[in-house]
Design a protein around this nucleic acid. Structure first.
Lengths: 236, 236
DNA sequence: ATTATATCGTGAAATGTATCACGATATAAA
DNA sequence: TTTATATCGTGATACATTTCACGATATAAT
């Protein structure tokens, strides 16, 4: 023990310099929500936000909010709260929203087209370099600001723009094959909108944006809620 | 204490009968994924699934899979695994995917239109009764199988079909007002696709399908991943 | 200048979730 | 039939997250 610092130039030793490297998932979700709330608060002219108001809006404990803030280096002032601007800036840095990320979009069906037209991404630093579809009937059609390209061109776009992120919005039965292809082309992260779980090599990041899961969660809560009402009010 | 069982016909006393009433969020997410994997496995002709294969696909501990299964009453056979069919049936029951849920969709812009055309919902028991938009230019246009209706008609549709769920796909600055309106009309659950956190009265369920959050999560993992590579391989 | 108070910051305790270790059991092999 | 083994089931343990309790501090009021 007591390994001498600096040996082998291991930069991961001083954990302080990489505060965003190991944020637990629940915290990350809350941080994204603080960001949204801070933006709205800023638009309403609030220069400060207290942990109490954040906790009330989100329905979590106020201490938890302060712990979250501390964990990413946002400091507040007693009796004032946190600066709205600092929350926004720091969280955009932490969440990676301030730097541009290039992505290709694969599959221009319902979801894919909607994502192409979604104005929110630019604001959050995502730049869709190009959109592709394997269906020749769709190629050359316009969707929003984009012209759909044939899959053959995808490889060169990935190389040219050094694209690391792919948005996968193809039908479920084509998703795995397409994911394999993208990984072979050097894509490192896949935002998957197809309702299946992708198998990818270690080191590739996949985020499943599973709408059916969201639906299941919603219905689960709704039923739970109704059941509590039927049971009559118990504790809280 | 030691309240006599059966007093006041309190059905919530024997916790055994309502296994789905208090499932932790992480488990719920895994359950939805087991469901998807089981469906694919079934299509591939696999009649059984072991906790080991599920755990490898999802990258979680095998014990955790067994605990999850036990928690919802799915029982497996030693040396065989869990029945694919039982997983699917039980989870559809637990997740509420087998019974129909009526919903109205508000806002037929990019996301809203995509959701209307999304074929997956029917399979998962969601029936969109009607779609509405406040923009008169959009009213009467067709999107998929739907004709967009004016907001004036929304109230009567909610009453007629006793709709409890609303899918909210309006611009961020209109979302809160619309949510308030829906709650006054009796909607109990809101599936919110607008990138803001809604304030709702206690007892109303909101699920935020926050695409920007998904993006933030993806980018966070990507950066973390790259950083680990630069640091050289440490433990795992 | 002094006091009051809203708010932050944080170690300690409580709670919740995941992993470990190991016994039980159904099928396959000998 | 007996033995071997893959797999389930679960109590005990370890780890992670949240809540509690309380001290510190900046602003506002007196």
């Amino acid at each position: 023990m007591m390994r001498k610092a600096g040996a082998k130039r291991v930069s991961g030793e001083d954990r302080t310099r990489i505060p965003w490297s190991n944020i637990p998932k629940p915290s990350l979700e809350r941080l994204a929500q603080y960001h949204q709330i801070a933006i709205r608060a800023g638009e309403d002219g609030n220069e400060n936000l207290s942990s109490v108001s954040l906790s009330e809006i989100l329905g979590v404990d106020e201490t938890l909010v302060r712990k979250d803030m501390a964990s990413v280096g946002i400091v507040g002032k007693p009796r004032v709260g946190y600066s709205t601007g600092q929350i926004i800036n720091k969280l955009e840095e932490i969440l990676g929203l301030s730097q541009h990320t290039d992505a290709v979009l694969i599959g221009c069906g319902g979801i894919g087209s909607a994502l192409l037209r979604y104005p929110g991404f630019r604001k959050y630093g995502l730049r869709i370099s190009a959109a592709f579809d394997a269906d020749f009937a769709k190629v050359n059609q316009r969707v929003g600001d984009y012209v759909i390209l044939p899959m053959e061109k995808c490889r060169s776009v990935i190389n040219t723009f050094r694209v690391k992120v792919a948005i996968l919005a193809v039908p479920a039965d084509a998703a795995q094959e397409m994911a394999d292809w993208l990984v072979r082309r050097g894509v490192q992260a896949i935002w998957n909108f197809a309702p299946i779980h992708l198998r990818v090599p270690a080191g590739i990041v996949v985020r499943n944006e599973n709408l059916a899961l969201g639906l299941a969660d919603l219905i689960h809560h709704l039923r739970r809620n109704n059941m509590e009402k039927e049971d009559g009010a118990r504790t809280r």
